[in-house]
Structures are given as C-alpha cells and as structure tokens.
C-alpha cells in the first residue's frame, strides 16, 4: 500500500498516438526531476486513521464530523487519535522548520497500525505526504515520516477512488460552485475529484466560475503578510463565483473557506460557503434540523 514511485519515461514525441512508453523504476539519481509519482489506490480498508487538522478542529468541526460520517457510511471504522494537534504546515511554509519538525514529530507516533491516514484537507494532506519526507530527511524519524507520508490520503480522493462512494442525493435542488484548493489540486493531484463527487448529486447544479484553477489568495501567512494582494485575489474569487450564478460554494480546504466566505460576508456579497464534506453529508443524510450549526459562514 505504500506509495509506489513509478515513472513513465516517454520517448519524445509530439502526439500521444505516436509515442512509445516504457515503465521503469526511478533510479535514485534522477529522482530530483521526477516530481510526479503515480499513486496506486489500495483496496478499501476496514479501518482508517482520521487526521482532523487544526482549522477544522477549531472552526469547522462539522466538516470533520461529516467526513467521519461519510467514511462510516462506507462501512469503515474511523479512528480519531485524540493526541493530534497540527501537521506543522503553518510553521513550515513560514520557514520555521525546527518548530514545524517538533510539532510534526509529535504526530508521527499517532498512527501505529498500517491503516490509511485520511485528511479532510489538501493542504495538511500535502504537508504530510509531500513535505514530511524532506522535513525529516537525515533525522532518526526519517523512516517513520516516510511511512506516514506514504499512507496519507486526501479524504475526498479516498472516498471517491478507494471507497468508490455512491451518493444518493436527498436534498432540494440547488446550485453550487466548487473551489478546489491549490494544494488539493496541485500537491495532492485531486483536481478531478470534487467535480466527480458533486456531479453524482442529481439535484445539484455545479456551475464553473471563471479561472477555477486560480488561487483564492489564502496562502496561510500570505494573507496577513500581503493583505492587499491577498484581498484583491479573494475579491476576484468571490465575484467570479457570483458571476457564475452560484449562491453558495463548496471547497476542499478550510483555509480557502475561511478566506472566500469571510470576504463575501465582509463585503456583504450574496455568497455563502461550506466544506465539501459538510455539503456531501447534508445531501445524503437527512439531518435533524439545527444539527448543522457552524456550517454556514
């Protein structure tokens, strides 16, 4: 189940039908340019570890809970290690790697069994999967960091491609826009997952805003270090969704959610948002009224 590092080496050629391809094991020396590894999805496991992330923990626990419920609906037992705190990403992207490593190190021991680790965030998932190996390279924890990294899955990706989830839409007709976070899109490579999940919902019309792949301007500390630039970016994102005709949006990451929904609210624009997991859970369940507090921003 560990991530296989496979590389496809094509012979140079312009057009797909013309190419010959060979699958090779990556030689250690050329790893430096082999940035994309092909992921091999495991069969559906009996159990998973759930890594909730600090933003969800504090601000959007409903999204975490929805993720747990969706997994359980698939017959998977969800283990929530109570000692989880934060993946270390805020310090890491700010350059404080000693601090990030200390926090990350405290998390490495939370997943003793060989179950997948699912994360309801592309950004924290990306930190654990992509950056833990670098962060711990040459340290005594390198092996356990690599092992953890290889077991990390972004939750929507896991639901779609490991659980092969089938979503029966029980909700009223509605229209949404989707913002796939940059880390989900580019670090975790799951840009197609959100649309495929939403498109299973028969009463949901998904509209696409202009430049769907453009960053919403969150970027962690970027939003406070460069407030004007970040502000311009998020304002554009809000407007693009409204222009597309979406009264609400869903997103794969709470950072984006906080940013986009917060901007719409502050500017009093007609757009609300929630985490895609909250949305999916609402569509397939019949929640008791008032059970979804905190969902709307």
């Amino acid at each position: 189940m560990t991530r296989e590092t496979l590389r496809i080496l094509y012979f140079y050629s312009g057009i797909a039908v013309d190419s010959t391809s060979t699958v090779l094991q990556t030689p250690e020396q050329v790893k430096i340019i082999m940035t994309d590894a092909i992921r091999v999805y495991p069969p559906k496991p009996r159990k998973v570890y759930f890594y909730g992330t600090c933003l969800i923990d504090l601000f959007y626990p409903d999204a975490g809970l929805a993720g747990v419920q969706l997994l359980e609906r698939e017959g998977i037992e969800v283990v929530f290690p109570q000692n989880q705190t934060c993946c270390g990403q805020p310090a890491y992207t700010s350059g404080y790697h000693d601090e990030a490593r200390a926090v990350a190190a405290s998390q490495l021991g939370l997943f003793p069994d060989d179950w997948p680790i699912v994360v309801p965030s592309g950004s924290c998932g990306g930190m654990m999967r992509k950056h833990y190996p670098d962060l711990f390279r040459g340290t005594p924890q390198a092996d356990s960091a690599n092992a953890v990294a290889g077991r990390v899955w972004e939750l929507t990706d896991f639901l779609l491609n490991v659980c092969h989830i089938k979503l029966d839409d029980l909700g009223e007709p509605t229209t949404v826009a989707l913002h796939t976070s940059c880390s989900a899109r580019r670090e975790m490579g799951v840009a197609d997952v959100g649309p495929r999940l939403l498109d299973q919902l028969k009463n949901v019309t998904r509209v696409e805003q202009a430049r769907p792949e453009e960053c919403c301007g969150f970027g962690g500390t970027f939003a406070v270090r460069h407030p004007e630039i970040s502000g311009a970016m998020v304002t554009d994102k809000v407007e693009s969704m409204i222009t597309a005709g979406a009264p609400e949006f869903v997103t794969t990451d709470c950072g984006c959610l906080m940013n986009i929904a917060g901007c719409a609210e502050k500017a009093e624009r007609p757009l609300t948002g929630q985490h895609i997991l909250s949305f999916l859970w609402q569509r397939v369940s019949t929640p008791a009224p008032g059970n979804d507090d905190g969902a709307q921003s």
Binding site: F50, P61, D62, F80, V234, E265
Partner: peptide, 17 residues
C-alpha cells in the same frame, strides 16, 4: 481588512469525537 473574522465553533472536533 478584507474578510470577517473566523468564528470558533462551540466545541472542537476532539470534543465531538
């Protein structure tokens, strides 16, 4: 300056779980 402040949830996911 550009967004409303995020609101803490009444209980954490840790507590819920």
């Amino acid at each position: 300056r550009y967004r409303s402040a995020p609101r803490l949830a009444p209980q954490t996911l840790h507590q819920m779980m």
